[in-house]
Design a binder for these strands. Structure first.
Lengths: 217, 217
DNA sequence: ATTAATTATTGCACTAAACGCAAAAATACA
DNA sequence: TGTATTTTTGCGTTTAGTGCAATAATTAAT
């Protein structure tokens, strides 16, 4: 008789997969702990592999670089956001879609209590900051794709959706920065509400400013 | 008799400063040429220093890292933009200020014929892409500061200006990507005009969308 | 259970980036 | 000319990251 097999249509993880996942988690945990204690540059890969009890060489079998360990935990955010966009009611306006999807994705992502400490680590490690910005760029393209797939307009729509995505992602980024800086007297949910309120208000103001301008011509 | 001295209040560069500048330029030119020929990773610092005829160690006396050579040439853009913002007429609307300042700063920056090739280099070198995003982040804060200094509103204005800056910088970034991708049948000036027209139109649309939404409540 | 095929882990050697330090060379100045 | 200052260099060291081949663990087949 073979080991473990399908149960509900999906293949269950055997010893191999399980061990691999455990090792990966061990490395990740050791790395984050050391980074938070000694800073990103203050912890070498050897320190990490020693703490996780694997060879230095194996580290690179699990993560392509030292930086990636830091960002691995939030790799799924963009996909979750895209799913949340697709899950919004079909007749909702684009504004409502964004606010709904973003809020739910954000609440899910910020559930991790470590996220604040990691945010601080990223904030004061230049190379991590740079890498972090890339995340936002990817998030932006994913969001654009999700919105485009939704309201399947023509190609002319693409630039606008791209701009809209950029605006939304920027809002998230700026909101994140504020959230990390300020003493939080608000719940995350309230915070997100306020942030979006401010965003929509700003857009409304800008919109009317622009209207004035073009009508004056 | 001493060497060279003041002429119009400013100290002129002596042999030392001149040589240092020349060496810096030599390294920069050699590096860019090699990067464009063999890719960023395909050219080692030794290759560069050999071509520039300086010791490997000296490289780091001029540039803190290999990456910085690529970005050194555009270090001044953010400052030029800030200056351009300050130089706009006092009574201009914020929309006009941004369009005017951005256009003039962009035209100046894109004058360098190498900028396109460098853009391509950055585009397909992940570590450079990441670093490049940081540039936009810095640009954003500088723009926010410049706008804030201009229309010296209260602190409540800050978040809005930050959002606006983010929107504008995103527009520039997306525009830059388009500019690099597409075959350019337009002059940069026309291109910038079209881009801003699209931005303002998008903002106007969004603005009215948001108005509808909040009035429906 | 034994064996064969996969896959994971490791050790070792190697390249290249980046830093510290002190000697040597170039430059400025008196 | 001589002396102080700054620049350049050489050398050694650390660390990230890769390639490769040997070894160990796991799975699958007989």
């Amino acid at each position: 008789m073979t080991d473990v097999q399908e149960i509900d249509g999906a293949v269950k993880e055997g010893r191999r997969e399980r061990k691999r996942r455990q090792t990966r988690e061990r490395i990740e945990a050791a790395a984050l702990a050391l980074f938070l204690e000694h800073g990103f540059d203050g912890a070498t890969i050897e320190d990490i592999t020693e703490a996780a009890d694997v060879s230095k060489r194996s580290f690179f079998d699990y993560f392509p670089s030292k930086e990636e360990v830091v960002f691995a935990w939030q790799d799924s955010f963009a996909d979750e956001l895209a799913d949340a966009v697709a899950a919004q009611p079909k007749d909702a306006s684009i504004v409502a879609v964004i606010e709904g999807a973003l809020t739910s994705a954000l609440l899910a992502a910020m559930a991790d209590p470590q996220s604040l400490a990691i945010g601080a680590l990223i904030h004061d490690t230049p190379v991590l900051s740079a890498r972090h910005q890339l995340k936002y760029a990817k998030l932006e393209t994913k969001l654009t794709d999700a919105l485009y797939a939704r309201s399947g307009g023509g190609e002319g729509e693409l630039l606008r959706l791209r701009l809209l995505s950029a605006i939304v992602v920027s809002t998230v980024r700026i909101g994140g920065e504020r959230w990390n800086e300020r003493p939080q007297d608000l719940s995350l949910q309230e915070f997100a509400q306020d942030l979006f309120r401010e965003l929509w208000a700003t857009l409304a103001d800008l919109g009317s400013l622009v209207e004035q301008r073009s009508s004056r011509r």
